[in-house]
Design a protein around this nucleic acid. Structure first.
Lengths: 348, 348
DNA sequence: TTCCGGTACTGTACCGGTACAGCCATTCGC
DNA sequence: GCGAATGGCTGTACCGGTACAGTACCGGAA
């Protein structure tokens, strides 16, 4: 039993293959009567409709967009911010019926996702611009949109104003009167070049602190997790009281939570003994104890706009238009920051 | 400027198109010397390698697997259990270099993902077996694996022993001496048929309670969230003390947390005034106050095994082998359950 | 010398569709 | 009543690869 194709149906109905194709893909090209007969025959013969792979080749479009996340993709699902980004993309994409194909950048076999998987374009999120995976995408001349990473000439790029948000966070602390401020940044390994996001936030913080003539204490968290934040905080809390920072700017909310816990483990009161600022405004940030002061980014909008940019790039022929967009951030002041020093009453 | 294809390279080097194809896909079929020349020429002419779409058609394989989640896909990313499942899949898939294409079941346009997107097989998670989307996949005769839903004859299916876990949870409460037990189930809308998971858990609970001659109070949460759990608990907590349940079996950990909060809002002590059992053993379950007694499922294993089953089905020709696997669940007793009634000392 | 096996490459026939130009018969405008 | 527009269907030429069955040549064993 050979496979059922357009031709099978065409023969059965006694029309040309092209007419059957039209019955499925361009109903207006034939009479309703004939179309019904064709569809009915197709149904009877167990034909599912045009083969997607063949159609992709002939039309030059596969109906999917690729998503490249450098960070072990595996982890992205477990990271609230990445997950919200994915969620927004899927929401934006759903109406169009396109699929989203997640690409892993490290492939052990001979299949290289970014080179070998059919797609109409791709979103590159938080990857090194020079990674091999990205390079394949570029060489394929696919429409691309870069998100949360070093902008790439010739492509639409979408960034969050991490720098501005970090500045606002730092200014908030300085204005409260803090002088010994610590920065908890985030690097997997000391040697590796930091991600654009990490660098941007760092730059924002430093710009303000430098301006105020303050030299921050910098420590590193090896991951964006509570545990890593907790660990990183030890070095700060071990300092003699006089040199111990009175405030901490953390790369992420999860790290910030870890820092708060570390302080609380030592019977320190947040914010009086230690003010803590996070980043991202994760869902849990308003439910921590105390509720976390943080920098909000609109992750949903980031996903939706990135997707829209990509869809537009896919729709438009010719060279990509390379506009760089910057989404705003906003400082959200909650209860994890205050002026330094214990007030009269202390209530945990 | 026309596109660079295999033929372009073939002409430039002066060999047949087939030889160029082999240079890329089957290095052992030609001399190393010629291969180098071909690759070099390809590089020079800006040829990226075989076109994925064309290759997919010719080889009958696109290098991706589909993932169908009925629940608004958009939400799945934000649900820890679904996200962990996705994470496990991506981890299992990464070495092979395959992509995972997320399909949304509701498509407004003329593109129907499950019908029109190329893929080599699909994982169907928590969908109604009779949904239209699933139907397309079946008609395409794709290798499929069904996870966390009503097993489908003729396909490999993977389920978690929700029923057994629910039984264990209920037994735990009965053994502690609870007699007035409430069930918090989960349905979006009253009319809609419940998901298989919802039904299974419910059946497990009831089996035990029926056996013990207990008639549970049943309430519904409209989502698997803290807020929905909080809301659902009101009906229970509004009951006069003598009829108020002393224990609650919740569909999920998030719902359980909402229930605990509702109780605590009323100055009730968990577990003494109200014992609460969740389901899934989400990461946060051990950090709630009090730490949550729950039923653990191995989400990572679920994802890994489902993926392995699918890969195997894709590799094997012929009819699918339809084995149904059941992954174990395990009751994890923490501090949110105790015998009913206040003990001597009460410490929140 | 003949035969055999292996290596290196080629030619043809697909894979299963879609685009587009063309053909024929109506129908419409004037 | 005639040219032009329209509707409905067909034929051919791709889309860009891969599979498989050759062919040609070469070295070594019988």
């Amino acid at each position: 039993m050979t496979r059922v194709t357009l031709q099978t149906i065409a023969d059965a109905v006694g029309v040309s293959r092209m007419t059957v194709s039209n019955a499925f893909s361009r109903p207006d090209q034939l009479s309703a009567d004939l179309r019904d007969r064709i569809l009915e025959t197709a149904e009877r013969l167990g034909y599912t409709g045009p083969d997607p792979a063949a159609r992709a080749l002939a039309k030059g479009s596969s109906g999917t967009i690729g998503l490249l996340f450098t960070d072990h993709l595996e982890q992205s699902f477990l990271d609230e911010i990445a997950a919200r980004f994915l969620s927004a993309i899927s929401g934006e994409l759903a109406p169009s019926g396109r699929g989203m194909t997640l690409l892993s950048s490290r492939s052990k076999g001979d299949l290289v996702p970014t080179r070998d998987i059919p797609m109409d374009g791709a979103l590159v999120y938080n990857c090194g611009a020079e990674s091999e995976a990205v390079d394949w995408l570029r060489r394929r001349k696919l429409p691309l949109v870069f998100v949360d990473q070093e902008p790439v000439r010739g492509y639409p790029c979408l960034n969050v104003d991490d720098r501005g948000g970090a500045r606002a966070a730092a200014e908030h602390l300085v204005r409260l009167g803090h002088r010994r401020i610590a920065l908890v940044t985030r690097m997997d390994e000391p040697r590796v070049a930091s991600s654009y996001t990490v660098t941007s936030r760092m730059e924002g913080w430093r710009a303000v602190l430098d301006g105020a003539g303050l030299e921050p204490i910098v420590v590193n968290a090896t991951a964006s997790t509570e545990d890593a934040g907790h660990d990183a905080a030890q070095a700060l809390l071990d300092l003699p009281t006089k040199r111990r920072p009175t405030a901490v700017l953390a790369y992420s909310d999860r790290i910030a939570v870890g820092v708060m816990q570390a302080a609380q483990d030592r019977e320190l009161i947040v914010p009086n003994d230690l003010s803590v600022v996070g980043f991202d405004d994760a869902f849990f940030a308003e439910h921590t104890r105390p509720p976390l002061t943080t920098v909000r980014q609109d992750v949903h909008r980031k996903g939706a706009e990135a997707t829209a940019l990509l869809m537009e790039a896919i729709g438009r022929p010719g060279p990509q238009r390379s506009d760089h967009r910057l989404l705003p951030t906003e400082l959200v002041v909650r209860a994890s920051t205050s002026r330094p020093g214990r007030p009269q009453a202390s209530h945990r």
